[in-house]
Design a protein around this nucleic acid. Structure first.
Lengths: 222, 222
DNA sequence: GTATTGTTTAACAACGGTGTTAAACACGCG
DNA sequence: CGCGTGTTTAACACCGTTGTTAAACAATAC
């Protein structure tokens, strides 16, 4: 059953990292014990302290790996090599597809920010930078389109929040859905997520292009 | 400093419950210790076990209280005493305002469902019932409006998901925002939430009424 | 005053989690 | 073989958490 025999000395470190990543992504820092990691990796818990001195070291390694992937994933979102809407749509779509490949990332980071914010400190700067770049990027594009009268007036920050929260919450709902309605397997979830993506895009498009004349009542541009 | 002197014997139970509610709502079950509750209530931790035998008992009391409020909050959402859109808009608004009064409820229940689902077991039935009633309620109304050609075709489940996730994530973002951008105090948050509510309503309205002819390409009704 | 009852305290037991250490083990090299 | 290096094990120390208990305390009734 164990993977012990297929791994000569020093697949160990790898095995620990894999087990740790899986558990940390699922349960967060506080609810993952070094014993759980050791058990899942098929080693004694003393090994964790031999390879990585502390639990925190292991966590930071997992966090680093995932944060790099996350931050990298934002760059393709800010390309402008097509007309406004196509560009925005592929941006949403790309972001959604990234989350599809890392469905546990949103809850993982959510947990970390809430319960171990100090572990995120080293990333605060880059995150703020990235967020402000995204907002500024879209501010500019949106303002251009508004000026041309092609879309309705909207606060770009609100639009970014719309897209981000819709995409993220689609994945953050998964634990709720499976916990509350266990009869739907993960196969069902995949189907729902696909239609969710279509819906989110439809929603944003309607928001921008629907009823140009009426929708500009109370949203203010910053 | 303590509140001890203002409370004669047996404000204790009350004090414990209040401390417990605050801490459980903030940190969830696993990350709240009985010692923390005792300290916040200004009593020794043995008192918790004297009044409520176990930590779980205290938690269940807090959970019960909040679940009752939550479930009750869904009924006013399903009134139909006005035209379709006004009715839906006040539904969204009512739901949002409820969350405004209980801003920590979403994360609290989210944590509980993910990490202590067994504590939610007693509510599973009522939750499923409520969810399915809401979906059925809106299914009917939406189908009527679609048949009359007043709104564009849309899967009612997706619309309910849109509204629910937009409203919920507005509040679930708060810990992220304050954790990541501590310079914005809770006063700022209030402002943002107010504009968020307007934006969510605008989004849903545009989704339903914008570009009737084009939007019905790939959303399928169940 | 004393007995009774309910409340509070302080000390303790049991457990699980993190991290350490010394000894056992495996392996390549002289 | 014997030696050194790197790896693994098992036992342990330490701490925080939950829950118990016996004794101290307060208040009321007799």
């Amino acid at each position: 059953m164990g993977t012990k025999e297929t791994r000569e000395h020093s697949g160990t470190e790898q095995a620990i990292m894999e087990a740790a990543e899986e558990l940390f992504l699922e349960n967060g820092y506080n609810l993952t014990t070094t014993t759980m990691i050791a058990k899942k990796a098929g080693v004694t818990h003393a090994m964790l302290h031999y390879y990585f001195r502390t639990k925190e070291h292991i966590f930071v390694k997992v966090l680093d790996k995932n944060m790099e992937e996350l931050l990298a994933s934002f760059y393709p979102v800010m390309r402008k090599d097509a007309p406004f809407w196509e560009s925005l749509e592929t941006g949403i779509s790309t972001h959604f597809d990234f989350l599809m490949k890392h469905p546990k990332l949103p809850t993982f980071l959510y947990d970390t920010v809430r319960f171990n914010p100090e572990l995120m400190d080293s990333y605060k700067g880059r995150i703020r930078e990235t967020v402000s770049r995204i907002v500024r990027f879209h501010c500019k594009l949106i303002q251009e389109e508004i000026d041309k009268g092609r879309i309705c007036r909207i606060d770009p920050l609100q639009l970014v929040l719309d897209i981000a929260t819709l995409n993220l919450s689609a994945f953050m709902m998964i634990p709720v859905a499976t916990g509350m309605f266990p009869e739907m397997g993960s196969g069902m979830a995949e189907e729902i997520l696909k239609s969710r993506k279509e819906e989110i895009i439809a929603l944003v498009r309607a928001r921008l292009y629907g009823r140009l004349e009426e929708t500009q009542h109370d949203t203010k541009t910053i």
